[in-house]
Amino acid sequence: MDAFADKVCDLWQPGDIVMVHDYALMLLPQMLRTRLPHIHLTFSLHASCPSHIPPGTNMRLLSKVLQGAFGSDLLTFQAFMHSNQFLGWCAQEAPAWTPHQDFLLGRVADSCFVHPMAIDASRVLSVAWSEDVSQICDSLKSAFEDKKIIVSYTTASFNEETVYVAQAFNRLETLFPRWRGKVVLLQITSLPWLYRDEGASGSDETLVQILAAQNSRKKLFKQQLLETEHYALLRASDATIFPFAPEALIKAGLDFMLCQRGGNKRPVISEASPLRFQLPRVILFPRGDIDGIARALDRALGFSFECPRCHNQPGARDCPECSGRPPMTPHRVLEPLMIPTVEEWVGSITARLVDRVLQCRFANPVP
Rank of each mutant, 00 (worst) to 15 (best):
L234D: 03
P246Y: 00
F277E: 10
S203K: 01
F244K: 04
A212N: 10
Q187P: 12
A212R: 13
T174G: 01
R178Q: 14
A236N: 03
G181F: 01
V184R: 00
L185I: 10
L211N: 08
L175N: 09
L175S: 13
Q278P: 06
S270E: 06
W193T: 07
D197R: 03
Q209A: 14
R235F: 06
S201A: 13
N215D: 15
R171T: 14
P192L: 00
D197V: 00
D289H: 12
Q187G: 11
L175D: 09
K251F: 11
S190Y: 07
K182N: 14
Y195E: 14
A168T: 11
A248Y: 06
C259V: 07
L194Y: 07
D255V: 00
Q214S: 08
N170F: 08
T206P: 08
S203H: 05
G288R: 02
R266Y: 13
P286R: 09
L284Y: 01
R196G: 06
L225M: 05
R276T: 08
P267V: 09
V282F: 09
T240L: 14
A168F: 03
L275K: 03
Q214R: 09
R217A: 15
L234E: 08
K218W: 02
D238Q: 09
K251R: 02
R261S: 13
A272D: 15
G263F: 08
E205L: 12
D289W: 03
N264D: 11
P274F: 01
A166V: 11
E247S: 10
